[in-house]
Design a protein around this nucleic acid. Structure first.
Lengths: 209, 209
DNA sequence: CCCATAACGGGACTCCAGTTTCGTTAATCG
DNA sequence: CGATTAACGAAACTGGAGTCCCGTTATGGG
Protein backbone atom coordinates (compact mmCIF):
# COMPACT_ATOMS: atom_id res chain seq x y z
CA UNK A 1 0.00 0.00 0.00
CA UNK A 2 2.31 2.82 1.14
CA UNK A 3 1.41 6.25 2.45
CA UNK A 4 -0.66 8.35 0.09
CA UNK A 5 0.32 11.56 1.90
CA UNK A 6 3.53 12.41 -0.01
CA UNK A 7 2.84 15.48 -2.16
CA UNK A 8 3.06 14.99 -5.90
CA UNK A 9 6.43 15.68 -7.47
CA UNK A 10 8.48 14.31 -4.58
CA UNK A 11 8.70 10.63 -5.55
CA UNK A 12 9.52 11.02 -9.24
CA UNK A 13 11.03 14.48 -9.51
CA UNK A 14 12.76 13.82 -12.85
CA UNK A 15 11.79 14.35 -16.50
CA UNK A 16 8.22 15.42 -16.95
CA UNK A 17 7.70 16.57 -13.36
CA UNK A 18 10.68 18.93 -13.55
CA UNK A 19 9.62 20.15 -16.99
CA UNK A 20 6.14 20.92 -15.72
CA UNK A 21 7.51 22.76 -12.72
CA UNK A 22 9.79 25.03 -14.70
CA UNK A 23 7.12 25.72 -17.33
CA UNK A 24 4.57 26.60 -14.65
CA UNK A 25 7.00 28.79 -12.70
CA UNK A 26 7.95 30.68 -15.85
CA UNK A 27 4.27 31.15 -16.71
CA UNK A 28 3.55 32.25 -13.15
CA UNK A 29 6.29 34.88 -13.34
CA UNK A 30 4.93 36.18 -16.62
CA UNK A 31 1.36 36.29 -15.33
CA UNK A 32 2.39 38.03 -12.09
CA UNK A 33 4.36 40.63 -14.00
CA UNK A 34 1.46 41.23 -16.39
CA UNK A 35 -1.67 41.07 -14.24
CA UNK A 36 -0.31 41.57 -10.74
CA UNK A 37 -0.98 39.38 -7.73
CA UNK A 38 -4.71 40.07 -7.35
CA UNK A 39 -5.96 39.33 -10.85
CA UNK A 40 -4.18 36.01 -11.06
CA UNK A 41 -5.87 32.92 -12.41
CA UNK A 42 -4.33 29.48 -12.01
CA UNK A 43 -6.21 28.26 -15.10
CA UNK A 44 -4.55 31.04 -17.11
CA UNK A 45 -1.14 29.99 -15.83
CA UNK A 46 -1.88 26.39 -16.79
CA UNK A 47 -2.83 27.52 -20.31
CA UNK A 48 0.38 29.55 -20.71
CA UNK A 49 2.48 26.65 -19.43
CA UNK A 50 0.61 24.25 -21.72
CA UNK A 51 -0.23 22.10 -18.75
CA UNK A 52 -3.53 20.80 -17.39
CA UNK A 53 -5.06 23.08 -14.80
CA UNK A 54 -5.70 20.03 -12.64
CA UNK A 55 -1.94 19.63 -12.38
CA UNK A 56 -1.44 23.19 -11.19
CA UNK A 57 -4.17 22.85 -8.56
CA UNK A 58 -2.86 19.46 -7.44
CA UNK A 59 0.78 20.51 -7.04
CA UNK A 60 0.40 24.08 -5.76
CA UNK A 61 -3.24 24.57 -4.90
CA UNK A 62 -3.20 28.28 -4.21
CA UNK A 63 -1.68 31.36 -5.78
CA UNK A 64 0.36 32.14 -2.67
CA UNK A 65 2.00 28.73 -2.47
CA UNK A 66 2.83 28.91 -6.17
CA UNK A 67 4.53 32.24 -5.49
CA UNK A 68 6.35 30.66 -2.55
CA UNK A 69 7.75 27.99 -4.89
CA UNK A 70 8.65 30.67 -7.42
CA UNK A 71 10.64 32.42 -4.69
CA UNK A 72 12.52 29.22 -3.90
CA UNK A 73 13.40 29.01 -7.57
CA UNK A 74 14.46 32.67 -7.71
CA UNK A 75 16.61 32.24 -4.61
CA UNK A 76 18.58 29.49 -6.35
CA UNK A 77 19.64 31.77 -9.19
CA UNK A 78 22.11 33.95 -7.30
CA UNK A 79 24.20 36.45 -9.23
CA UNK A 80 27.83 36.74 -8.12
CA UNK A 81 28.69 40.11 -6.65
CA UNK A 82 31.34 42.38 -8.07
CA UNK A 83 34.31 43.74 -6.05
CA UNK A 84 35.64 47.25 -6.57
CA UNK A 85 38.01 47.71 -3.64
CA UNK A 86 36.10 50.44 -1.80
CA UNK A 87 32.95 50.27 0.29
CA UNK A 88 31.21 52.98 -1.69
CA UNK A 89 32.11 51.29 -4.98
CA UNK A 90 30.76 47.95 -3.80
CA UNK A 91 27.58 49.45 -2.39
CA UNK A 92 27.02 51.40 -5.59
CA UNK A 93 27.41 48.23 -7.62
CA UNK A 94 24.84 46.57 -5.39
CA UNK A 95 22.48 49.55 -5.54
CA UNK A 96 22.72 49.71 -9.33
CA UNK A 97 21.92 46.00 -9.57
CA UNK A 98 18.83 46.39 -7.39
CA UNK A 99 17.82 49.56 -9.22
CA UNK A 100 18.12 47.96 -12.65
CA UNK A 101 16.08 44.99 -11.48
CA UNK A 102 13.28 47.06 -9.96
CA UNK A 103 13.24 49.58 -12.82
CA UNK A 104 12.82 46.84 -15.42
CA UNK A 105 9.09 46.67 -16.21
CA UNK A 106 8.79 42.92 -15.99
CA UNK A 107 11.08 42.36 -13.00
CA UNK A 108 9.77 45.39 -11.15
CA UNK A 109 6.17 44.25 -11.47
CA UNK A 110 7.21 40.74 -10.50
CA UNK A 111 8.92 41.91 -7.32
CA UNK A 112 5.94 44.03 -6.36
CA UNK A 113 3.64 41.07 -6.86
CA UNK A 114 5.88 38.76 -4.88
CA UNK A 115 6.00 41.18 -1.96
CA UNK A 116 2.22 41.48 -2.10
CA UNK A 117 1.82 37.71 -2.04
CA UNK A 118 4.15 37.42 0.95
CA UNK A 119 1.93 39.75 2.99
CA UNK A 120 -0.98 37.35 2.53
CA UNK A 121 0.49 34.03 3.57
CA UNK A 122 2.97 32.88 6.22
CA UNK A 123 4.66 30.23 4.04
CA UNK A 124 5.15 32.69 1.20
CA UNK A 125 6.49 35.27 3.65
CA UNK A 126 9.04 32.74 4.88
CA UNK A 127 10.15 32.04 1.31
CA UNK A 128 10.52 35.77 0.70
CA UNK A 129 12.58 36.17 3.87
CA UNK A 130 14.94 33.38 2.80
CA UNK A 131 15.30 34.97 -0.61
CA UNK A 132 16.42 38.28 0.86
CA UNK A 133 18.52 36.53 3.49
CA UNK A 134 20.50 34.87 0.72
CA UNK A 135 20.93 38.09 -1.22
CA UNK A 136 22.05 40.00 1.87
CA UNK A 137 24.49 37.26 2.87
CA UNK A 138 25.94 37.32 -0.65
CA UNK A 139 26.82 41.02 -0.36
CA UNK A 140 27.65 41.33 3.36
CA UNK A 141 31.35 40.39 2.88
CA UNK A 142 32.04 43.71 1.16
CA UNK A 143 31.15 45.50 4.38
CA UNK A 144 33.32 43.07 6.35
CA UNK A 145 36.22 43.97 4.07
CA UNK A 146 35.54 47.67 4.67
CA UNK A 147 35.74 47.02 8.41
CA UNK A 148 39.09 45.28 7.93
CA UNK A 149 40.35 48.20 5.83
CA UNK A 150 39.28 50.55 8.63
CA UNK A 151 36.76 52.37 6.43
CA UNK A 152 33.98 51.56 8.84
CA UNK A 153 34.05 51.13 12.65
CA UNK A 154 34.53 47.68 14.12
CA UNK A 155 31.31 46.08 15.32
CA UNK A 156 29.27 47.35 12.37
CA UNK A 157 26.40 45.06 11.40
CA UNK A 158 27.27 44.14 7.80
CA UNK A 159 23.83 42.75 6.99
CA UNK A 160 22.17 45.92 8.19
CA UNK A 161 24.34 48.04 5.89
CA UNK A 162 23.38 45.96 2.86
CA UNK A 163 19.70 46.21 3.77
CA UNK A 164 20.13 49.96 4.13
CA UNK A 165 21.14 50.14 0.47
CA UNK A 166 18.07 48.30 -0.81
CA UNK A 167 15.52 49.78 1.59
CA UNK A 168 15.11 53.23 0.03
CA UNK A 169 14.85 51.71 -3.45
CA UNK A 170 12.06 49.35 -2.42
CA UNK A 171 10.39 52.10 -0.41
CA UNK A 172 10.42 54.31 -3.47
CA UNK A 173 9.10 51.53 -5.72
CA UNK A 174 6.19 50.81 -3.40
CA UNK A 175 5.18 54.17 -1.95
CA UNK A 176 5.86 56.67 -4.74
CA UNK A 177 5.25 56.69 -8.47
CA UNK A 178 8.72 58.08 -9.17
CA UNK A 179 11.06 56.40 -11.61
CA UNK A 180 13.97 54.48 -10.12
CA UNK A 181 17.02 55.94 -11.87
CA UNK A 182 20.77 55.64 -11.36
CA UNK A 183 20.75 58.79 -9.23
CA UNK A 184 18.43 57.08 -6.77
CA UNK A 185 20.73 54.07 -6.65
CA UNK A 186 23.83 56.19 -6.08
CA UNK A 187 22.08 58.20 -3.40
CA UNK A 188 21.06 55.01 -1.60
CA UNK A 189 24.64 53.72 -1.72
CA UNK A 190 26.16 57.00 -0.57
CA UNK A 191 23.69 57.39 2.28
CA UNK A 192 24.37 53.85 3.50
CA UNK A 193 28.15 54.33 3.23
CA UNK A 194 28.06 57.68 5.04
CA UNK A 195 25.86 56.30 7.83
CA UNK A 196 28.07 53.22 8.17
CA UNK A 197 31.22 55.35 8.44
CA UNK A 198 29.50 57.45 11.13
CA UNK A 199 28.84 54.29 13.14
CA UNK A 200 25.07 54.22 12.71
CA UNK A 201 25.03 50.46 12.15
CA UNK A 202 27.01 49.38 15.23
CA UNK A 203 25.60 46.19 16.65
CA UNK A 204 23.92 46.33 20.06
CA UNK A 205 23.91 49.71 21.84
CA UNK A 206 23.37 52.69 19.60
CA UNK A 207 26.61 54.53 18.92
CA UNK A 208 25.56 58.18 19.12
CA UNK A 209 23.76 60.21 21.77
CA UNK B 1 -34.25 62.75 -16.66
CA UNK B 2 -30.69 63.77 -15.69
CA UNK B 3 -27.49 61.84 -16.17
CA UNK B 4 -27.49 58.43 -14.55
CA UNK B 5 -23.69 58.27 -14.64
CA UNK B 6 -22.93 59.98 -11.30
CA UNK B 7 -21.60 57.34 -8.90
CA UNK B 8 -23.72 56.62 -5.84
CA UNK B 9 -22.93 58.67 -2.74
CA UNK B 10 -22.09 61.88 -4.60
CA UNK B 11 -25.57 63.46 -4.83
CA UNK B 12 -26.79 62.85 -1.28
CA UNK B 13 -23.60 62.44 0.74
CA UNK B 14 -25.24 63.21 4.09
CA UNK B 15 -26.80 61.07 6.83
CA UNK B 16 -27.13 57.44 5.89
CA UNK B 17 -24.63 57.53 3.05
CA UNK B 18 -21.88 58.89 5.31
CA UNK B 19 -22.80 56.42 8.05
CA UNK B 20 -22.56 53.52 5.62
CA UNK B 21 -19.19 54.72 4.33
CA UNK B 22 -17.58 54.99 7.75
CA UNK B 23 -19.04 51.65 8.88
CA UNK B 24 -17.77 49.91 5.75
CA UNK B 25 -14.32 51.50 5.94
CA UNK B 26 -13.95 50.50 9.59
CA UNK B 27 -15.05 46.96 8.73
CA UNK B 28 -12.67 46.89 5.77
CA UNK B 29 -9.76 47.91 8.01
CA UNK B 30 -10.63 45.18 10.50
CA UNK B 31 -10.98 42.55 7.81
CA UNK B 32 -7.71 43.55 6.13
CA UNK B 33 -5.85 43.41 9.43
CA UNK B 34 -7.34 40.00 10.24
CA UNK B 35 -7.37 38.11 6.95
CA UNK B 36 -4.91 40.07 4.81
CA UNK B 37 -5.51 41.40 1.35
CA UNK B 38 -5.88 38.10 -0.51
CA UNK B 39 -8.49 36.35 1.60
CA UNK B 40 -10.82 39.32 1.59
CA UNK B 41 -14.53 38.93 0.98
CA UNK B 42 -16.74 41.94 0.33
CA UNK B 43 -19.75 40.02 1.63
CA UNK B 44 -17.93 39.50 4.93
CA UNK B 45 -17.19 43.22 5.14
CA UNK B 46 -20.85 43.99 4.47
CA UNK B 47 -21.86 41.64 7.29
CA UNK B 48 -19.41 43.27 9.75
CA UNK B 49 -20.59 46.74 8.78
CA UNK B 50 -24.24 45.61 9.07
CA UNK B 51 -24.87 46.77 5.54
CA UNK B 52 -26.28 45.05 2.49
CA UNK B 53 -23.60 43.47 0.33
CA UNK B 54 -25.29 44.99 -2.72
CA UNK B 55 -24.40 48.40 -1.32
CA UNK B 56 -20.74 47.53 -0.96
CA UNK B 57 -20.58 46.17 -4.50
CA UNK B 58 -22.46 49.16 -5.91
CA UNK B 59 -20.35 51.84 -4.22
CA UNK B 60 -16.91 50.25 -4.34
CA UNK B 61 -17.15 47.25 -6.62
CA UNK B 62 -13.74 45.74 -5.99
CA UNK B 63 -11.48 45.12 -3.03
CA UNK B 64 -8.77 47.39 -4.44
CA UNK B 65 -11.02 50.40 -4.89
CA UNK B 66 -12.37 49.92 -1.38
CA UNK B 67 -8.78 49.99 -0.13
CA UNK B 68 -8.18 53.12 -2.19
CA UNK B 69 -11.07 54.82 -0.42
CA UNK B 70 -9.78 53.57 2.92
CA UNK B 71 -6.45 55.23 2.13
CA UNK B 72 -8.18 58.53 1.35
CA UNK B 73 -9.82 58.25 4.76
CA UNK B 74 -6.53 57.38 6.48
CA UNK B 75 -4.80 60.30 4.79
CA UNK B 76 -7.32 62.72 6.32
CA UNK B 77 -6.42 61.68 9.87
CA UNK B 78 -2.99 63.27 10.12
CA UNK B 79 -1.18 63.29 13.46
CA UNK B 80 0.66 66.51 14.31
CA UNK B 81 4.41 66.12 14.48
CA UNK B 82 6.45 66.86 17.59
CA UNK B 83 9.41 69.28 17.68
CA UNK B 84 12.50 68.61 19.77
CA UNK B 85 14.95 71.27 18.56
CA UNK B 86 17.51 68.93 16.96
CA UNK B 87 17.40 66.99 13.70
CA UNK B 88 18.22 63.70 15.36
CA UNK B 89 15.55 64.28 18.00
CA UNK B 90 12.90 65.04 15.41
CA UNK B 91 13.85 62.11 13.19
CA UNK B 92 13.83 59.77 16.19
CA UNK B 93 10.35 60.99 17.10
CA UNK B 94 9.25 60.28 13.55
CA UNK B 95 10.95 56.88 13.47
CA UNK B 96 9.39 55.87 16.79
CA UNK B 97 5.96 56.87 15.52
CA UNK B 98 6.37 54.77 12.37
CA UNK B 99 7.86 51.90 14.36
CA UNK B 100 5.01 51.86 16.91
CA UNK B 101 2.48 51.90 14.08
CA UNK B 102 4.06 49.05 12.14
CA UNK B 103 4.81 47.00 15.26
CA UNK B 104 1.20 47.15 16.40
CA UNK B 105 -0.41 43.88 15.27
CA UNK B 106 -3.53 45.44 13.81
CA UNK B 107 -1.92 48.51 12.23
CA UNK B 108 1.07 46.54 11.00
CA UNK B 109 -1.11 44.00 9.25
CA UNK B 110 -3.26 46.78 7.86
CA UNK B 111 -0.29 48.60 6.36
CA UNK B 112 1.04 45.42 4.82
CA UNK B 113 -2.36 44.73 3.27
CA UNK B 114 -2.68 48.26 1.97
CA UNK B 115 0.74 48.11 0.32
CA UNK B 116 -0.20 44.77 -1.23
CA UNK B 117 -3.43 46.21 -2.61
CA UNK B 118 -1.57 49.17 -4.09
CA UNK B 119 0.68 46.84 -6.09
CA UNK B 120 -2.41 45.41 -7.80
CA UNK B 121 -4.25 48.48 -9.00
CA UNK B 122 -3.23 51.88 -10.38
CA UNK B 123 -5.95 53.87 -8.60
CA UNK B 124 -5.09 52.29 -5.27
CA UNK B 125 -1.40 52.94 -5.89
CA UNK B 126 -2.17 56.60 -6.50
CA UNK B 127 -4.10 56.79 -3.22
CA UNK B 128 -1.16 55.19 -1.40
CA UNK B 129 1.26 57.65 -2.98
CA UNK B 130 -0.88 60.59 -1.83
CA UNK B 131 -1.04 59.13 1.66
CA UNK B 132 2.74 58.99 1.96
CA UNK B 133 3.14 62.32 0.21
CA UNK B 134 1.04 63.92 2.94
CA UNK B 135 2.94 62.20 5.72
CA UNK B 136 6.30 63.18 4.24
CA UNK B 137 5.22 66.79 3.73
CA UNK B 138 4.07 66.91 7.36
CA UNK B 139 7.55 66.00 8.62
CA UNK B 140 9.77 67.66 6.01
CA UNK B 141 9.89 71.04 7.85
CA UNK B 142 12.05 69.55 10.60
CA UNK B 143 14.78 68.95 8.02
CA UNK B 144 14.32 72.49 6.68
CA UNK B 145 14.88 73.80 10.19
CA UNK B 146 18.04 71.71 10.49
CA UNK B 147 19.29 73.28 7.27
CA UNK B 148 18.62 76.73 8.71
CA UNK B 149 20.45 75.79 11.91
CA UNK B 150 23.39 74.65 9.77
CA UNK B 151 23.15 71.04 11.00
CA UNK B 152 22.76 69.82 7.44
CA UNK B 153 24.19 71.21 4.16
CA UNK B 154 22.15 73.67 2.14
CA UNK B 155 20.42 72.07 -0.86
CA UNK B 156 19.50 68.91 1.04
CA UNK B 157 16.27 67.29 -0.16
CA UNK B 158 14.08 67.38 2.97
CA UNK B 159 11.52 64.90 1.63
CA UNK B 160 14.23 62.40 0.82
CA UNK B 161 15.57 62.54 4.37
CA UNK B 162 12.14 61.82 5.82
CA UNK B 163 11.68 58.91 3.43
CA UNK B 164 15.11 57.62 4.44
CA UNK B 165 13.84 57.29 8.02
CA UNK B 166 10.80 55.19 7.09
CA UNK B 167 12.38 53.11 4.35
CA UNK B 168 14.41 50.68 6.51
CA UNK B 169 11.45 50.14 8.82
CA UNK B 170 9.13 49.21 5.96
CA UNK B 171 11.86 47.14 4.34
CA UNK B 172 12.29 45.23 7.58
CA UNK B 173 8.53 44.75 7.99
CA UNK B 174 8.14 43.36 4.50
CA UNK B 175 11.31 41.37 3.82
CA UNK B 176 12.30 39.94 7.20
CA UNK B 177 10.41 38.30 10.04
CA UNK B 178 12.28 40.35 12.65
CA UNK B 179 10.46 42.35 15.28
CA UNK B 180 10.41 46.11 14.81
CA UNK B 181 11.70 47.47 18.11
CA UNK B 182 12.82 50.89 19.35
CA UNK B 183 16.43 50.03 18.50
CA UNK B 184 15.45 49.63 14.84
CA UNK B 185 13.68 52.99 14.93
CA UNK B 186 16.65 54.76 16.54
CA UNK B 187 19.04 53.16 14.08
CA UNK B 188 16.93 54.34 11.15
CA UNK B 189 16.85 57.88 12.53
CA UNK B 190 20.58 57.95 13.27
CA UNK B 191 21.50 56.59 9.85
CA UNK B 192 19.33 59.17 8.10
CA UNK B 193 20.72 62.00 10.23
CA UNK B 194 24.33 60.91 9.66
CA UNK B 195 23.83 60.56 5.91
CA UNK B 196 22.06 63.92 5.73
CA UNK B 197 24.90 65.63 7.63
CA UNK B 198 27.40 64.04 5.20
CA UNK B 199 25.50 65.56 2.26
CA UNK B 200 24.12 62.32 0.86
CA UNK B 201 20.70 63.86 0.19
CA UNK B 202 21.83 66.92 -1.77
CA UNK B 203 19.39 67.69 -4.57
CA UNK B 204 20.57 67.24 -8.15
CA UNK B 205 24.19 66.14 -8.67
CA UNK B 206 25.47 63.64 -6.15
CA UNK B 207 27.68 65.31 -3.53
CA UNK B 208 30.51 62.81 -3.12
CA UNK B 209 32.88 61.13 -5.55
C1' DC C 1 13.63 -3.91 -21.18
C1' DC C 2 9.33 -4.21 -18.50
C1' DC C 3 6.31 -3.44 -14.73
C1' DA C 4 4.14 -0.80 -11.03
C1' DT C 5 2.47 3.32 -10.21
C1' DA C 6 3.54 8.48 -9.81
C1' DA C 7 2.09 12.20 -12.15
C1' DC C 8 -0.50 14.26 -15.77
C1' DG C 9 -4.84 15.85 -18.46
C1' DG C 10 -9.60 16.30 -20.18
C1' DG C 11 -14.07 16.99 -18.84
C1' DA C 12 -17.99 17.02 -15.70
C1' DC C 13 -19.40 19.01 -11.51
C1' DT C 14 -19.98 22.19 -7.44
C1' DC C 15 -20.28 26.23 -5.03
C1' DC C 16 -19.92 30.87 -4.03
C1' DA C 17 -18.21 35.69 -5.39
C1' DG C 18 -20.21 39.08 -7.88
C1' DT C 19 -24.53 40.82 -10.56
C1' DT C 20 -29.27 41.92 -11.49
C1' DT C 21 -33.93 42.99 -10.12
C1' DC C 22 -37.10 45.35 -7.80
C1' DG C 23 -39.31 46.91 -3.68
C1' DT C 24 -38.19 49.99 0.64
C1' DT C 25 -36.13 53.78 3.20
C1' DA C 26 -34.67 58.31 3.87
C1' DA C 27 -31.80 62.69 2.16
C1' DT C 28 -32.49 67.03 0.01
C1' DC C 29 -35.12 70.78 -1.97
C1' DG C 30 -39.04 73.64 -2.31
C1' DC D 1 -43.86 69.29 5.82
C1' DG D 2 -44.48 66.71 1.52
C1' DA D 3 -42.74 65.28 -2.99
C1' DT D 4 -38.97 63.54 -5.54
C1' DT D 5 -35.67 60.27 -6.20
C1' DA D 6 -30.90 58.90 -4.41
C1' DA D 7 -29.32 55.30 -2.00
C1' DC D 8 -30.09 51.10 0.42
C1' DG D 9 -31.22 45.97 1.04
C1' DA D 10 -33.30 41.19 0.37
C1' DA D 11 -33.50 37.60 -2.68
C1' DA D 12 -32.94 35.32 -6.94
C1' DC D 13 -29.62 34.52 -10.42
C1' DT D 14 -25.19 33.45 -13.05
C1' DG D 15 -20.42 32.55 -14.48
C1' DG D 16 -16.25 30.94 -13.58
C1' DA D 17 -12.74 29.53 -10.01
C1' DG D 18 -11.59 25.46 -7.82
C1' DT D 19 -12.70 20.16 -7.16
C1' DC D 20 -13.43 15.43 -8.49
C1' DC D 21 -13.28 11.39 -11.39
C1' DC D 22 -11.06 8.42 -14.11
C1' DG D 23 -8.48 7.23 -18.19
C1' DT D 24 -3.60 8.09 -20.15
C1' DT D 25 1.36 8.91 -20.10
C1' DA D 26 5.92 8.05 -18.80
C1' DT D 27 9.33 7.81 -14.62
C1' DG D 28 12.43 5.01 -11.96
C1' DG D 29 13.50 0.66 -9.91
C1' DG D 30 14.44 -4.10 -10.67
Amino acid sequence: MGFEGADPGTVRPGGRTARVRSAVLRAAGDALAEHGFAHLDLADIARRAEVGKTTVYRRWGTVTSLVADLLVDMAEQSLPRTETGSLLGDLKANARLVQRTLADPRQGALFKAVVAAATCDAKTAEALHSFYDIRVKEWAPCVQQAIERGEVPDGTDAHEVIRAVSAPLYYRLLTTGDRLDEAAADQAAEAAAAAARAGAYLRGERGLA
